[in-house]
Write a protein that binds this DNA or RNA. Structure first.
Lengths: 216, 216
DNA sequence: GTCTATAACCCGATAGAC
DNA sequence: GTCTATCGGGTTATAGAC
């Protein structure tokens, strides 16, 4: 009984990216789908298997989602909203006139999110091409907000002289690149916890931005 | 006539990663496969379409490759061998007792390769899970060589005091992460040419390694 | 070495009972 | 809201003629 509760709590924690109010079956379907899409890829996953992982018959999926792609879109939407939320929170907590603190906090937050929810992060970053054009465009809007915030932070720091950034566009891309690729290689069994990796990458970001005192 | 020759030359240049001696049809199949796998993914690509892109019937594929996975494996093998070759060449040209020059040259070479052959790079980095276990193990050996060379360079530089690297393992991972993710976002129509991007990432690598004079 | 034809199977999605 | 049954189509790979 206690064992049972512990397992439920553990799963809730592991799937905390899924914080939307949902019918229980729809929630189980999304969790099964994200795990299957991450492990084998969207196209290699059969809707039958997703249904089975949620304890439903093959037809049970279509009561809750019109198509298989709709399942992927909901995962992408919820995942990206979650990322945007932690990025905004990190920027707010760092204050508005300290580019170095902001850059460190934002990169740490994105990195930790990608590590903690690496299964979800893998799906939302590497299955964008499996979305319909309309859905991909909706997701692109959310991704642009994150990109803009990092770029603006680099520009602020460069303007005030605390950063040395020869190419703001290229450095923004490199910083986000670093955080996104965490989804590819991160495993929960690895050496670093998500928050530790976030702190490390926050420092790396300051070095990449040419922050004074961030290099030997 | 001249136009025709130019197009052939342009394609040869674009597909220079494929430098193995091969029957013409096998070569066309590999090029068609890499383009399709990169654009739509391995599982979303039908062998019929690969055959058609090489001007063959659906059965024509199986004269040259036993399975669809064998096609992916050959692409992975040739691509990884090419990467290892440019990495070795970069390390050799930088000399053996200058960790900063070596790191810059190696990261620049991997980055430029991933940008120049971004289509191939996408396939060989993001379709590893579609390989059989045996084939994936063979590719892992090649990947380890690249990882070891970067890690050793960081250790050499840290030991001699030209680098400031608090976590060699983590920094190695971050550096390779940066170069691999190029395959995800790079487009030939973008702002930077492969060699320019390589030079930029070589400098970023020195900053990340805490190289003196690489930060403001 | 390439073709046509097809085997054997798996897929996403729907119909209609309960 | 979930089931069983199935439609219509697509998949990899093979058989056998040329």
């Amino acid at each position: 009984m206690t064992q049972e509760l512990d397992q439920t709590e553990a799963r809730d924690l592991a799937e905390a990216w899924l914080d939307e109010p949902l019918a229980p079956a729809a929630r189980r379907l999304l969790i099964g789908a994200v795990e299957a899409f991450a492990a084998r890829g969207y196209h290699a996953t059969a809707t039958r298997d997703i249904a089975a992982s949620a304890g439903l018959s093959p037809a049970g999926v279509y009561v809750h989602f019109a198509t298989k792609e709709e399942l992927l879109y909901q995962i992408s939407l919820i995942g990206h909203r979650g990322t945007v939320r932690v990025v905004r929170a990190a920027a707010a907590s760092a204050g508005h006139d300290d580019p170095a603190a902001t850059l460190r906090a934002v990169i740490a937050a994105i990195t930790a999110w990608h590590a903690r929810y690496h299964t979800t992060a893998r799906v939302i970053n590497y299955e964008l091409s499996s979305l319909t054009e309309r859905h991909r465009a909706a997701i692109a809007t959310l991704r642009r907000e994150i990109d803009s915030l990092v770029r603006q932070t680099l520009e602020d720091g460069a303007a005030s002289g605390v950063f040395d950034v020869p190419d703001v566009r290229g450095t923004t891309l490199a910083l986000l690149s670093l955080t996104i690729d965490v989804a590819r290689w991160f495993r929960a069994t690895g050496a670093r916890a998500p928050d530790e990796l976030g702190a490390f990458y926050g420092e790396l970001a300051l070095r990449m931005a040419g922050h004074r005192g961030s290099s030997a």
